[in-house]
Simulated assay, not measured.
Amino acid sequence: MGGEVKFQLGQNPYIKLVLHALKHRVSSVNGILIGRLDDASSTVDIVDAVPLSHSQIGLLPTLEIALIQVEELFSADGLSVVGYFHANERYDDSELGKIAKKIGDHISRYFPQPAVLLLDNKKLEALCKSIHREPVVQLYTKDASKGWRQAGIDASVQLTLKEPSANTVLSDFIATEKYEEIVDFDDYLDDISKDWLNPRLFK
């Protein structure tokens, strides 16, 4: 992808990744972003998020198993892994850490310029007090010479929410404690009857 790159984040994956973090407030969480690239517009459309872990953060064998399964599950629909999301354990930690960068590097084997979304706890807290349209995640992309950088530093990379009302819906989900229903890959490994794709979350 050359020139300006756009990442468009759909409402469902956006809500899902935030709810995953809210369910496990005292630990780091992560997951995989699913989507497709529109070459004509240089836009990466993120259409789903698959919650991965809340206890096995950074274990590449577990990540690799999940990535292989995700690729198999979504490839028939023309979708693939396009990125990664992460929420830090500490509320005041707004930095993309070594583990998140390492996993982002690993995912770049699947998609050459993946999106890495880091939850911004302060923006999330502000949303709980007053609805705004700004996403409560920060986009990071990898520069060949400078490594992982915030999108705000590089004007050629943009992140937008596909649905303008996404934060309103997210706020409603938080108020009704919908995050209690989220299942991640860790939960699935403990109990294979649990569906880590969360097909009924938005029913």
Rank of each mutant, 00 (worst) to 15 (best):
E64P: 07
Y110R: 15
L79C: 07
F202N: 10
L201R: 05
G83S: 11
S193Q: 06
E72I: 07
I192Y: 01
Y91W: 14
A166E: 05
G35V: 04
M1F: 12
L161A: 12
Q150P: 10
Y84N: 05
D48V: 05
L9N: 03
I65D: 14
S94A: 07
I34Y: 04
D77C: 13
G147Y: 04
V157S: 04
A115N: 04
D77A: 15
P164S: 14
K98W: 06
V116G: 10
L189F: 11
D120M: 09
V47A: 00
R36Y: 12
G78D: 02
A21R: 04
W148V: 00
K6V: 11
T43W: 01
L139N: 01
E163Y: 13
G83W: 13
K101G: 00
I182F: 08
D191M: 06
E180H: 13
V44A: 11
P13R: 06
V157Y: 02
D172V: 02
D92L: 12
F202P: 09
Q11T: 10
A40N: 14
F111Q: 08
D93M: 09
K122D: 08
A21P: 01
Q56L: 07
Q138S: 13
D92P: 03
L117A: 08
L73H: 11
F111C: 05
G58V: 12
G97A: 08
Y188V: 06
R90I: 06
P164T: 11
G3H: 03
D77E: 15
A49S: 11
L159T: 00
A66S: 07
S27C: 11
A126K: 09
G3F: 01
W148P: 00
G152W: 07
S193L: 03
V169A: 07
V29K: 10
V82F: 06
S42G: 12
S27W: 04
P61A: 08
I192S: 11
E95T: 14
L19C: 06
S108N: 10
I68C: 05
V5N: 07
L59W: 10
G3T: 01
V44W: 10
E95A: 13
D45S: 08
N88K: 05
Q8K: 13
R109Q: 15
E4A: 11
I192T: 14
E163V: 13
A126D: 10
I65W: 01
T160V: 14
G2C: 02
K6F: 15
T160A: 13
K98T: 10
H106K: 15
P114R: 09
L139K: 04
R36I: 07
E71T: 13
V137F: 10
L139M: 06
S108W: 09
V81I: 10
Q69Y: 12
S171P: 03
G104P: 00
Q56E: 09
D191L: 04
V169M: 02
H20C: 14
I65E: 15
R109E: 15
V82Y: 01
S156R: 13
D38G: 01
E163S: 14
V50A: 08
A40R: 14
L17N: 05
S94N: 11
L73W: 02
E181C: 01
G10Q: 11
I68V: 14
L33V: 02
K203M: 03
I107Q: 03
K123A: 13
S145C: 00
E89D: 09
R133V: 14
Y91M: 10
A166W: 03
G152C: 02
S145Q: 13
